[in-house]
């Protein structure tokens, strides 16, 4: 239609090039921090004897979701150990947890800020829409450009992909706190901080926890995809199954992902309910 082509790809590439050369110090520090976190999670999990970890995860699941789910979780974990995916399983868990640490560290404050400022909310909302509808694979490319191959870009891409629901639901949860509760605390002379920590956050907690739950689930799906750029873990096993057309191996790795998903989902879904009376 037009005699020229809008050079979006050139702009983006140029921007990424510029940033990765000019701000290498920043990216290196982020990279080191991510590595530090993932390594420690992974080492911590793998130091434990599988049986100990199975018991601990079983107990947490029991506390959060009851006997039946705990039984499924423990059985699932034994299967994972048995089919030789224990190390990959824990790598994936470490990746998800690391990404979630960043998601919470950034997502909560951003969500709180969005709830307090309509203007900021107006800016961030289309951005979040964009982040969520963009195909997940696309995040991998800039992540590689900035951080190279390996697990660091995997965690970063996961972070970007998983943060929107937490921001959204934190924002929503705080906005849904009844007006009278805010008025009541104002009437007592509450400061902004007192209002946030004694009223808004506790009342919004179930919604915020739903956000944490969703971001963990999204994170888990992304971690598997991130195996394509060398993030390792269960995703790598799935990928190997695909590349070699070994249906059985692919299925086993997929099953392990499902088991991890069930455990994480039930535990975090339970958090939102924990303070509610019977």
């Amino acid at each position: 239609m037009f005699p020229f082509r809008i050079p979006i790809r050139d702009w983006i590439s140029a921007a990424v090039d510029y940033l990765s050369t000019q701000f290498s110090v920043v990216f290196d520090s982020i990279s080191n921090l991510v590595l530090f976190l993932v390594d420690n999670f992974k080492d911590g999990l793998l130091t434990l004897h599988p049986l100990v970890l199975i018991v601990v995860l079983g107990l947490i699941t029991y506390r959060m979701a009851g006997w039946a789910t705990a039984g499924v979780a423990v059985a699932g974990l034994f299967i994972v150990e048995n089919i030789g995916l224990w190390v990959a399983f824990n790598e994936t868990l470490a990746l998800v947890l690391s990404a979630e640490v960043f998601v919470i560290a950034f997502g909560l404050p951003l969500g709180i800020f969005a709830a307090g400022s309509d203007r900021f909310n107006g800016i961030i909302r289309p951005l979040l829409d964009f982040m969520q509808t963009m195909p997940a694979f696309v995040y991998l490319i800039p992540a590689i450009m900035f951080f190279g191959l390996g697990l660091v870009p995997g965690v970063i891409a996961t972070f970007v992909f998983a943060i929107p629901p937490l921001i959204r639901l934190t924002n929503l949860g705080i906005r849904q706190v009844p007006k009278e509760l805010i008025e009541a605390s104002d009437a007592f002379g509450a400061t902004r901080a007192q209002k946030l920590f004694k009223v808004q956050m506790p009342v919004a907690l179930p919604t915020v926890m739903a956000g944490v739950n969703q971001s963990i689930m999204l994170g888990l799906s992304m971690v598997v995809i991130a195996a394509m750029i060398g993030a390792g873990g269960l995703g790598a096993e799935v990928l190997r199954g695909i590349q070699r057309l070994e249906v059985g191996q692919g299925f086993e790795a997929g099953l392990a992902v499902v088991i991890l998903a069930v455990i994480l989902d039930r535990i975090t879904a339970g958090f939102g309910q924990i303070k509610k009376p019977q």
């Binding site: 009844p178 009278e180 008025e183 009541a184 009223v199 506790p202 009342v203 907690l205 509610k276």
Partner: peptide
């Protein structure tokens, strides 16, 4: 308040 506005948690 009319609807009490006490903290549910």
């Amino acid at each position: 308040f009319q609807n009490f506005a006490i903290l549910p948690h």
